[in-house]
Design a protein around this nucleic acid. Structure first.
Lengths: 239, 239
DNA sequence: CGCATTTTTGACAGCTATCAAAGACCGTGG
DNA sequence: CCACGGTCTTTGATAGCTGTCAAAAATGCG
């Protein structure tokens, strides 16, 4: 499923077959992780990056009273920690939100790759800047959207991102998040997530059962969320 | 005051004098802006970046009902929109939060600079990744910290960032934000910001008058905020 | 000195949190 | 194939943090 990665890149710029081959060659190994596993701990030194192939991961931080906030979700095709290449250590944990499979790319292979293909340096720089754009949209959600719109917005975002990765089936996609985990993304309690979910269902906007989310009325869901996909930069142009 | 920029860079890595000279040579002109001015509008094509020299700017988004959320504050020494170099257009507005002065750096000068100094490419990549790290911490604040801790955290962050830029005077710094603008950073209403500010004052943690913030008890303020500066990456090491 | 903006106050509403417990669901093992 | 234990979802009652609305007081700029 590393194809998801190239779909993601090629949604934003041309990637030559030489570049693709070089990227593929940076993968040192593949690893599998169980659900709810801490892949990288805040503060730890990083010498490799993790390209997610299957499953979902998240970036999370914890406060002293145990409250956890997830600041971004990674889906197949995403690097969960490419920012670690320049930061050297992370300011957050990386955790699995389902069982996962990932390709491991050592930093000492990324460096020569980017030297050889300066274009890829800009493309991957852009990918981390898109992460930041997603963070900004989450900031807007947490700061200004009420629970219903906030949840609707998250479902819209994931729909678009998964579609780019080729992981949307009709109007639905696998969403492995528990309501507890959803609440940690949305800055709510699990109880309130449950009630908000019911309200979205009651209005005929979504279905959500056995870890599969179905969007019944995308235009309405987007309108409630005030969702505009511009922050996902779905334009193919020279970077 | 472009020195603030080099102080910021040199807090994270060595910058040679050749690199410094090359960076200085990329500046095409300087501009001044009045308070509350929109420097760049969401969606607009960018062909230059803005290096803030004096004053504060912010990145903001607006919802249809007029609610505004500021997702990050830029202080002197920061590029407000370096991510525009790879993104080509922005997903947010850039607005002044005071009168400002800035150096304008055309993108067609950045490209050759980074080709000539690949090290600077990594350094500036890192700077945008630090922006993302700040976004993540704001996400944690908005999602999980109550008003008091959230505000305390913002004051701590700005204290550290301004200190790096050489703009802290003892225990105080110029903070041009109105309570309305503070509320737009913190995801609160202006009224509640006012009350929260009073509570911080009542506890003897800060003073805040005539646009100057004084921290009276930094350790306590940090502890209320659960502030840990690790996400600001104040370590000098090869990037 | 005077108007506009910003800060402050008070009363009240409401969204979301808290606490506790019942019901569903699910993978595991017999 | 069914029982079993744990996790996840759902529900109900109540609390409380933060929002809303309106107006007075203070501040600041021209």
């Amino acid at each position: 499923m590393i194809e998801a990665h190239f779909k993601k890149l090629r949604a934003r710029d041309e990637i030559s077959s030489a570049e693709e081959a070089a990227i593929r060659a940076t993968v040192a190994e593949e690893r599998e992780y169980r659900d709810n596993f801490t892949v990288a701990r805040r503060g730890a030194e990083l010498s490799e990056s993790t390209l997610l192939l299957e499953g979902w991961m998240g970036r999370s931080k914890i406060l002293s009273d145990g409250q956890r906030q997830i600041s971004e979700i990674s889906v197949p095709g995403d690097f969960t920690d490419l920012h670690g290449f320049t930061l050297k250590r992370l300011d957050h944990d990386v955790v699995t939100l389902s069982r996962c499979r990932a390709a491991i790319v050592p930093h000492d292979r990324i460096r020569p790759l980017l030297d050889r293909f300066p274009h890829l340096a800009r493309v991957y720089w852009m990918m981390t800047n898109m992460d930041a754009a997603i963070h900004r949209e989450w900031t807007l959600s947490l700061g200004r959207r009420a629970a219903l719109g906030r949840m609707a917005h998250l479902f819209c975002e994931l729909f678009v991102r998964l579609k780019v990765a080729g992981l949307v089936d009709g109007q639905s996609y696998q969403c492995p998040l528990s309501q507890q985990e959803l609440s940690e993304c949305l800055g709510l309690t699990a109880v309130h997530v449950n009630r908000t979910l019911q309200e979205l269902r009651r209005r005929g906007l979504i279905e959500f059962q056995s870890r599969r989310l179905t969007i019944l009325d995308l235009p309405l869901l987007q309108s409630i969320a005030e969702f505009d996909a511009d922050y996902l930069y779905l334009e193919k142009r020279p970077r």
